[in-house]
Simulated scan of single mutants.
Amino acid sequence: MTRRDAVARVALLMGGTVIGAEFMLTGCSPSTSDKQAGTQDSKNPGQVANNFKALNPEQTAYLTEVADTILPATKTPGAKAANVGPFMAVMVRDCYTPEDQKIFMDGLDKLEAASQKASGKGFIKSTPAERTALLTALDKEQREYTKTKKPEDPNHYFRMMKELSMLGFFTSEIGATKALRYVAVPGRYDGNVPYKKGDRAWATS
């Protein structure tokens, strides 16, 4: 599966474009994502410095738990088995604009506050059922927000988290080979492959 295919699939599942897709499709270099930071890098004239502080191990582990609630293990492994958190951290650092980086980081605090309000506990200490209920409510919130969102309006932090969870999982080895059907070296093209309801989608095409 190519990066373009993965972004397209996540966009289809989410019902819209993927935040940061333009950077993801062009390599996600820090110099690209820093264009709107507004601070010149004194060591590299003409380049824009990135003041984004990378996520720490605790925050990365937190994201893995969020992703695993979105994509839990069922008959196939979940997001935790694919170690999605570090992937999400890199994508935020390298593929988001400074504005979206701030929204995402502030979103970690908002999610924690929402958890405290909903159950009186932080997200990590919440039960699987409490986590699922919370993220289901946040997902409903972001979908309603996205329906009326104007281009100039800020993105919703939970949409970012959900997109990166899905992108990270389905492009991982576990996601591509266990959750999807995968052929390492595809043979001839067959445009009429038999399909039964419930069959897993193909990771390769």
Rank of each mutant, 00 (worst) to 15 (best):
Lys102Asp: 03
Glu65Leu: 04
Leu13Thr: 13
Arg143Ala: 09
Phe123Glu: 13
Lys110Leu: 14
Phe123Gln: 06
Asn44Leu: 10
Ile19Glu: 02
Thr177Leu: 03
Ser172Trp: 01
Pro98Thr: 05
Leu108Glu: 05
Ala8Trp: 04
Gly120Ile: 00
Gly191Thr: 00
Asp139Ala: 12
Ala21Ser: 14
Gln142Asn: 09
Asp34Phe: 15
Gln36Thr: 11
Tyr145Pro: 13
Lys125Gly: 05
Glu130Gln: 09
Gly38Leu: 08
Thr127Asp: 04
Pro45Gln: 08
Pro77Ala: 07
Leu180Phe: 13
Arg93Leu: 10
Gly78Phe: 12
Gln36His: 10
His156Tyr: 14
Lys80His: 09
Lys43Glu: 11
Thr76Tyr: 09
Gly168Thr: 11
Ala89Thr: 13
Gln116Phe: 07
Pro57Trp: 14
Asn192His: 10
Val7Gln: 04
His156Lys: 11
Leu164Ala: 12
Tyr145Ala: 11
Ile103Asn: 08
Glu58Gln: 14
Lys197Asn: 05
Val90Met: 11
Arg143Trp: 01
Lys162Phe: 14
Ala81Thr: 11
Trp202Tyr: 10
Arg131Glu: 08
Lys117Glu: 15
Ser172Arg: 01
Ser31Glu: 13
Phe23Gln: 11
Ala133Trp: 01
Ala129Asn: 08
Ala89Tyr: 04
Ala118Asp: 10
Arg3His: 09
Lys125Met: 06
Lys53Gly: 07
Ala67Asp: 15
Pro72Met: 08
Ser115Met: 00
Gly16Cys: 12
Pro154Ala: 04
Gly38Ser: 02
Glu22Phe: 07
Thr26Asp: 00
Ser29Asp: 07
Thr204Ala: 05
Asp68Val: 01
Val48Tyr: 03
Tyr182Arg: 08
Ala129Phe: 04
Pro151Glu: 04
Ala118Leu: 06
Thr171Ser: 12
Arg93Ser: 07
Ala67Ile: 06
Thr127Val: 08
Asp109Ser: 12
Ala67Ser: 15
Tyr182His: 14
Thr2Gln: 02
Pro30Ala: 07
Thr69Ser: 13
Lys75Ser: 11
Glu144Phe: 01
Pro45Asp: 11
Pro151Thr: 05
Lys80Gly: 08
Glu130His: 01
Met1Arg: 02
Thr132Met: 04
Phe169Gly: 07
Lys53Ile: 14
Asp153Lys: 09
Tyr62Leu: 10
Ser205Ile: 02
Leu71Asp: 05
Gly122Trp: 00
Leu108Asn: 00
Arg143Asp: 05
Phe158Ala: 02
Val183His: 05
Phe170Pro: 06
Leu111Ser: 02
Ala113Arg: 00
Pro128Val: 11
Gln101Leu: 05
Thr132Pro: 06
Val193Ile: 11
Ala11Tyr: 06
Ala201Met: 09
Gly20Tyr: 02
Gly20Gln: 04
Ala176Gln: 14
Ser31Arg: 15
Thr69Cys: 09
Pro154His: 09
Arg9Trp: 15
Val92Phe: 10
Phe169Arg: 03
Met166Ile: 14
Gln116Ala: 08
Arg188Val: 08
Phe52Tyr: 13
Pro57Glu: 11
Ser126Phe: 02
Asp94Ile: 05
